[in-house]
Lab assay of single mutants.
Amino acid sequence: MPSETPQAEVGPTGCPHRSGPHSAKGSLEKGSPEDKEAKEPLWIRPDAPSRCTWQLGRPASESPHHHTAPAKSPKILPDILKKIGDTPMVRINKIGKKFGLKCELLAKCEFFNAGGSVKDRISLRMIEDAERDGTLKPGDTIIEPTSGNTGIGLALAAAVRGYRCIIVMPEKMSSEKVDVLRALGAEIVRTPTNARFDSPESHVGVAWRLKNEIPNSHILDQYRNASNPLAHYDTTADEILQQCDGKLDMLVASVGTGGTITGIARKLKEKCPGCRIIGVDPEGSILAEPEELNQTEQTTYEVEGIGYDFIPTVLDRTVVDKWFKSNDEEAFTFARMLIAQEGLLCGGSAGSTVAVAVKAAQELQEGQRCVVILPDSVRNYMTKFLSDRWMLQKGFLKEEDLTEKKPWWWHLRVQELGLSAPLTVLPTITCGHTIEILREKGFDQAPVVDEAGVILGMVTLGNMLSSLLAGKVQPSDQVGKVIYKQFKQIRLTDTLGRLSHILEMDHFALVV
């Protein structure tokens, strides 16, 4: 994948999101292997301009796509893939009243899908469409860049269908997702969380590099694949309309690839034109409109599966009536509230959605109805927002919020430890010299600072030695090549209790 991002070429006709291997024109390309080798690009942008032909009021008969309808489940399912879809609609009884809503608040519980998330729908649909058009064949390999849930859905379907599955996901995604993927037989590649989507090191860039190296491999490409919004247009939206008897006044959905909100909203605009569509985008993402909503100094966020630093091709923002931004604290607070007060075992993005819903639905009156999409299960986040310690460490809970008995030293300040200034190293000294210094002084790690004293990161003896043994660096290389740029900081005025929580999850903390 090139470091400079080429513009994806656009073909003359058809839909841009065809499933299957992508040609340089962004659509299915038939021909000899030699032709494909000559024409197939190194990668295709996940934010390529959409060429979708959908228009409100256009006859369904003019759609270029294969459409399906929700099917009634048999008493005995032939395999677990038949437990994807037909998820329950559940009334939220307490939270709406707590925040003064007059309307009825309903939750579409997508964590009841077989793999635990709304992404099971698009995973199965992308595979079925690729099999139907002859792209996927027995023994082929599926590769997908994902925040985890699409990966789980694909790995689940691949396990049943017999495909090899490789999932490329950023490091910030939970260990629970990784464990589930491994249990399903998927191979996992992790990428830096802070890598831009168009960087060769991003999950998108690495996935395309693997595709170019592995024979008979395919990126189904949830960011561009029409099967993504079509899955929701054909099934999720129809289920909502049936469950609500066609009567709903507002739908609120958090947005990642945009397939969920695009597919549902398009069908609702056709069948229930008075329904307002509300999009939820986390602070630090750029999906919301108008652009002024996205202006923030924050560039990272903890909530998973929603928000991006690019506009995915499948996201149709014209069908969203209003956007709201959400933050991590309210997302996790509301997710825990949904679990504790409503018994809905949902993930953090569901918290984002409901946090926005109780604001947006203030305009609705008694007798009206708001539906929220709860995308995934708490299963993926047992060591994250479900953990009091994690919430404390991230600053989303305060010590006084917890009532468990603490040891005698818990409320003492870090400054009472009488710490001395640490050994520091410059980023320009060599790895070999740094190892000598650390061994001589008896230290395992040291902060790396520039000549102005600005902290650049941390270097550890173990990481340097393993990097040297693996051949990633040489003793003569500058130590700046092996620094940890993500590390926890703590102030002298913070409590030892807070430091204790940090050290339970990290090997060190830097006192500043």
Rank of each mutant, 00 (worst) to 15 (best):
M250V: 01
V180L: 11
H232F: 05
I240F: 07
A114H: 10
P64W: 01
K269A: 08
A71L: 11
E270T: 06
R132C: 11
K211N: 12
A114C: 04
T87C: 01
V118A: 15
K39A: 08
G263V: 04
A69G: 14
K98N: 09
P273E: 08
W43K: 01
P145F: 05
S73W: 10
L156I: 12
L81F: 09
C103R: 04
D249Y: 01
S23N: 01
R209C: 08
G259A: 06
T68F: 11
T5D: 03
A38Q: 01
H232Y: 07
G14A: 01
K211Y: 06
K267C: 10
H22C: 10
S202C: 03
T236N: 14
I167L: 10
S174R: 01
H203S: 10
T262A: 12
N225A: 15
E213I: 08
W54M: 08
T141A: 08
C244T: 05
H17R: 06
M250E: 01
P215F: 12
D179W: 01
D129S: 14
S174C: 04
M173A: 05
W43S: 06
R121S: 01
C103E: 05
H66Y: 12
A114S: 14
G274S: 06
P200L: 11
A48Y: 07
P78E: 06
E213K: 10
E213H: 01
R121W: 03
G96R: 13
C244N: 01
N225V: 01
A155E: 01
D234G: 08
P229H: 01
I80E: 05
K39R: 14
G100P: 01
I95Y: 05
K98F: 07
T257L: 04
T236P: 06
H65K: 05
L248R: 03
G20M: 15
D79I: 09
S254C: 13
E187A: 01
L184W: 05
A237S: 07
D79T: 13
N225R: 03
A207W: 01
L268H: 01
T53N: 14
T150N: 01
K94I: 01
E37L: 13
C109K: 01
L106V: 09
S202V: 01
T5I: 15
S117C: 01
S32F: 07
K97F: 12
H66P: 07
K39G: 01
I80H: 01
T257A: 08
I143K: 01
C103V: 09
K247A: 10
E213C: 08
G185Y: 01
P12F: 06
Q7M: 05
R121T: 14
K75H: 04
K271Q: 09
K82S: 08
A253L: 15
D47L: 01
K94G: 11
L106C: 15
C15N: 01
R209D: 01
S27G: 11
V160F: 01
G139T: 08
K30D: 13
N228S: 06
T5L: 05
P16L: 11
E187M: 01
R224W: 01
H66K: 01
M173S: 09
T257R: 12
F112A: 04
P16V: 01
R91G: 12
S32D: 05
L184K: 01
E176G: 07
A207F: 01
G259H: 01
T235I: 10
P41R: 06
K177I: 01
T53R: 05
S175R: 06
K98L: 06
L101P: 11
V178I: 01
K75E: 05
G115A: 14
K271G: 05
K94W: 10
R196D: 01
H203Y: 07
L154N: 05
T68A: 12
Q242R: 10
P200N: 07
R58P: 10
L101W: 06
K172F: 01
D221I: 01
A38I: 01
R224L: 05
R58S: 05
V118F: 06
P41F: 01
T87A: 11
P59A: 04
A159W: 01
R18H: 12
M126L: 12
I44S: 06
L220H: 01
A231S: 05
N228M: 05
R209M: 08
C165R: 01
E104F: 04
V118R: 04
M126G: 04
T236S: 10
K94T: 15
D234S: 09
E171G: 01
P59G: 06
D249F: 01
G85F: 07
G57C: 10
A69F: 13
P273Y: 01
N93R: 04
V255W: 01
T236D: 03
A186H: 01
T87Q: 05
K39N: 12
L42S: 03
N216F: 06
Y163W: 01
K94P: 01
P16S: 01
G162P: 11
P78V: 06
A237N: 07
T146P: 05
N113M: 06
G258M: 01
H67S: 11
E4G: 09
N212H: 01
Q243M: 06
